[in-house]
Amino acid sequence: MAPFPGSGLAKGLAVTLRTMMRKSVTEQYPDAQPELPPRTRGVIGLFEENCTVCMLCARECPDWCIYIDSHKETVPPAAPGGRERSRNVLDRFAIDFSLCMYCGICIEVCPFDALFWSPEFEYAETDIRELTHERDKLREWMWTVLAPPALDAGAEEPKEIAAARKTAEKLAAAQAEPEEGES
């Protein structure tokens, strides 16, 4: 119940006046770039060296907007007398951003960490066909990818670091054992 008639009206006026006194939240975008958090879904960058042309991303893409062409190459055996290895070589990796719905499934499914979110977002085109970006462009965007945010204090270790640490510990233990045996 209002303490006196019109107190609600006064409260409304106070709210707007207080908002006016505060700093406005508008970002002056073209003059000032927005500060976007890492992993902002701006654009997808490709780190080619990690790609094995496994086609998982293209298959999982709900929009079928990833185009991958490749051919096989035989690699001479690593050691003399060994078997020749065949290797997939990437010919084309393109993402049609007019189809992409930024679900990020391709990035999730990539088993070799070849795809990354980049906060870059200024790639509008005047023609829809020019929104299909090829590997060189995707590679350029790779360099705009931000480092992932720091983990929370007390969080579990990232898997790859944990695995690396375990191997390192094992190795250290293996090196330490013979030393013990010697002494």
Partner: peptide, 13 residues
């Protein structure tokens, strides 16, 4: 301008 600032905006710039 006033309306913009009362709504947390900047208005025409």
């Amino acid at each position: 301008k006033v309306m913009a600032h009362m709504q947390g905006r900047l208005g025409p710039m």
